[in-house]
């Protein structure tokens, strides 16, 4: 069985769906995954404090959904993620400019999403946005895995996963399977089984989120490659 289908429903279509439930699910997903990357970019580029950046992120996403900016996304010009980031830069830049004008007594200007240049974002911002996007996707998958484990009564499985794959990654020397087996009072083979199960579910959640966040199979694969990029040891 294939790990994912060859075609899937477009995110942009879902955001414009006449079905209110589908539309709201799509909006909720975009807001959940992109909120933190948006906040990070705003803090980095415009030097806002977190509270101000959160307000701006909220306004940006609200306006984007309200004015259906994302409906103008053209897949042939780049990834949805890149388009969203470019919209953000245009929005926040206009906000900053408007604030300056207001101080001088000038008029508020409108954001011209039509003129958004996807390629105009600098590399540092691009890397930051991508890293925070990856963190956001994986964070969501960890939370979904936790929910799975809670539902299935597999608290130990989640604990082993966190100990090895999250806390263990932060440690100077990651715990061995034997250490974990001793700590949790289970056989080493059980540690292997727990990790295999948890990683499989974690992987499914990540891919499912990516599938929902992208607008074509090609974009899905490109995003998966970006997310799964690994170094050869």
């Amino acid at each position: 069985m294939s790990a994912f289908p060859d075609t899937h429903h477009s995110l942009v279509e879902a955001l414009q769906s006449p079905d209110r439930g589908e539309r709201e699910r799509a909006i909720e997903l975009v807001a959940r995954v992109y909120r933190e990357p948006v906040i990070a970019v705003v803090m980095h580029k415009w030097g806002h404090q977190r509270a101000d950046a959160e307000d701006l992120a909220h306004d940006f996403l609200l306006q984007a959904f309200d004015k259906e900016w994302f409906a103008r996304y053209d897949a042939s010009r780049g990834r949805f993620r890149t388009f969203l980031r470019a919209c953000l830069v245009a929005f926040a830049g206009t906000r900053a400019e408007a604030a300056t004008r207001l101080k001088r007594g000038g008029a508020v200007t409108h954001v011209a999403i039509e003129d958004v240049d996807i390629a105009a974002v600098d590399d540092t911002l691009d890397a930051l946005f991508e890293r925070e996007w990856a963190r956001s996707v994986l964070t969501g998958a960890v939370e979904a895995l936790r929910a799975d484990c809670d539902t299935a009564g597999r608290g130990s499985t989640f604990a082993v996963f966190v100990a090895h794959d999250i806390d263990g990654a932060d440690a100077d020397s990651p715990p061995t399977y034997a250490t974990l087996a001793s700590h949790f009072g289970i056989p080493i083979t059980q540690v292997t089984n727990y990790l295999n199960w948890a990683r499989r579910r974690f992987r499914e959640h990540v891919l499912s989120t990516l599938r929902a966040l992208t607008t074509s199979d090609a974009e899905f694969r490109a995003e998966a490659r970006a997310l799964l990029g690994v170094d050869i040891s």
């Binding site: 890293r131 960890v142 936790r146 989640f158 604990a159 794959d165 990654a169 932060d170 997310l227």
Partner: peptide, 26 residues
């Protein structure tokens, strides 16, 4: 064990990224 997933460190992020594609070899 509970954890605020927003605290995923860069190291954990990198590790999880490389873990996702690991084959489930049994």
């Amino acid at each position: 064990m509970t954890r605020d997933a927003r605290e995923l460190s860069d190291a954990a992020l990198r590790h999880l990224q490389s873990t996702i594609d690991l084959p489930d070899a049994g």
